[in-house]
């Protein structure tokens, strides 16, 4: 087990290493000049040369990279080229927004997707199943930003025009200041994101449950006279869980990138919108930090999934020992 975890951690570090090299090389070959970005259009050559020396941009790329990694290990991720603020401060202001968005959406999509999947699988071919399947295929096909824009139009703009304010147009209120306002501001983005992702879970749950419900031990459980509820949730759903956990790990890991569009549509100033603006402004330190943060998200989520697997499935536990 320890060896398995170490191997996974090693692979995660390799992913982060390659990601950082990728972004570094990418910006190195980019035609934009950081010194020009910092100093502005009217800067003299001398000033720009000074800036390059100060930032170490006159060094060869591997020296720059090693400096970057050295600073990173000391907890220093540099300063934004545009605002001059420390990147950590920028991220610190943005991460709570994105985390709130992801947290609520995950809870909602599990709460929507899994029951639909189970209900479908209990009565395959029924009307309920057809509705569930229909929901799933529409959800899978719906581009998130289209759904978000439609939600804003139907649930914010039209009611507001009619004089009823159901939802705010977007924006964010910190949880610590006003928990209700926090939820009220996030409910549309949460629902939008959750509906799209829940569709995937409804399908996956249905497929898994159908497979498990057809097994002999379920028949045995029925023969023992267990209640249908007990069979569904304790016996069948437990076995159907591992693939769902894997999918959840993948989805949460990729969420940092996945919320970009939602943040844009709902005007949430989270990490995703920071990524978009920084990329547009060629703000290299910020982009590198966000891409690496995204990588950390994926790596950590995968690790947690691997560990959860061992908890959920005793076969993994014994095999890996």
């Amino acid at each position: 087990m320890t060896r398995f975890i170490l191997a996974r951690v090693g692979f995660g570090l390799l992913v982060l290493f390659l990601l950082s090299v990728f972004v570094f090389v990418l910006f190195y070959v980019s035609p934009s000049d950081p010194a020009r970005i910092i100093a502005g259009d009217k800067a003299t050559e001398e000033l720009m040369a000074q800036i390059r020396v100060k930032l170490g941009l006159d060094q060869p790329i591997y020296v720059q990279y090693l400096n970057f990694v050295g600073n990173l290990l000391r907890g220093d991720i540099g300063f934004s080229y545009r605002s001059g603020l420390p990147v950590s401060d920028l991220l610190y202001a943005r991460v709570p927004v994105t985390m709130s968005l992801v947290f609520g959406a995950v809870v909602l999509w599990l709460a929507i997707g899994i029951p639909i999947g189970i209900a479908s699988a209990k009565h395959p071919g029924s009307l309920r199943d057809r509705f569930g399947q229909g929901f799933a295929i529409v959800g899978i096909s719906f581009p998130t930003f289209v759904l978000g824009m439609m939600a804003l139009f139907l649930l914010y703009f039209l009611p507001t025009k009619a004089g009823v304010t159901l939802f705010p147009p977007g924006g964010y209120v910190p949880f610590a200041e006003d928990p209700l306002g926090w939820a009220w501001h996030l409910i549309l983005p949460w629902t939008t994101l959750a509906l799209v992702v829940a569709a995937v879970y409804a399908r996956l749950t249905r497929g898994q449950m159908l497979e498990v419900l057809g097994q002999d031990y379920i028949r045995t459980a029925r023969a023992k006279g267990l209640t249908e509820r007990r069979i569904t949730y304790t016996h069948a759903f437990r076995s159907a869980m591992p693939p769902l956990v894997t999918q959840l790990g993948i989805d949460i890991g990729l969420m940092l990138g996945g919320v970009i569009v939602i943040e844009q549509v709902f005007g949430l100033l989270g990490v995703g919108s920071l990524a978009v603006t920084s990329v547009a402004m060629q703000d290299r330190p910020v982009v590198i930090a966000i891409v690496l943060l995204g990588g950390v998200f994926v790596v950590v989520a995968n690790l947690v999934v691997d560990l959860l697997y061992a908890v959920l499935d005793s076969r993994v536990r014994t095999a890996a020992r």
């Binding site: 390799l14 990601l19 980019s30 990729l254 990138g257 970009i260 990524a275 990329v279 891409v291 990588g295």
Partner: peptide, 23 residues
């Protein structure tokens, strides 16, 4: 398989926007 895993563990939208923005 490792290369496949690697590509799968990349936050693709973030990398895609970085790549497109630069190139």
């Amino acid at each position: 398989s490792r290369i496949t895993d690697l590509v799968m563990s990349v936050p693709f939208l973030l990398c895609a926007i970085a790549l497109v923005a630069v190139l």
